[in-house]
Nucleic acid binder design. Sequence first.
DNA 1: GCCAACGTTGGC
DNA 2: GCCAACGTTGGC
Length: 134
Amino acid sequence: MAYWLLKSEPETYSYEDLLRDKTGRWDGVRNYEARNNIRDMKVGDRALFYYSGKNPQVIAQVKIASEPYPDPTIDDPRWLCVDVQALSLFPKPIPLADIKANPACADLLLIRHTRLSVMPVDPVVYTAICEMGQ
DNA sequence: GCCAACGTTGGC
DNA sequence: GCCAACGTTGGC
């Protein structure tokens, strides 16, 4: 199983939207590096759901619920999307500042490559972030 | 509102 | 193929 982090602005698509939809489509990615990460996703992989913007924080855990497939929001087969489903809301959201302050997360792309919206997360780091949310 | 990072576009 | 200009993302 692989681990990822997915960025969204809560005004654009929130965890509440995902709960309402049951299965959400993670579409609209128009960046090759992010697209390549989507391409590597498998059903059952886990992902951290991150809110970018005013109050940047990891708020929940989701699971990848489909193989990658062409993004229906654009007429261009280069761009891919996946379906995701809600897993759990963290009891305590993990602010970006806390992730930055944790030395275990120093190599996380969220910190090193701030503009990437879909990224792999090392399993050890993933576990550390989950523990910070309990 | 500002700025850094960085991807994209277009002229040459 | 290079580079300047410009637009976008995202943290602060």
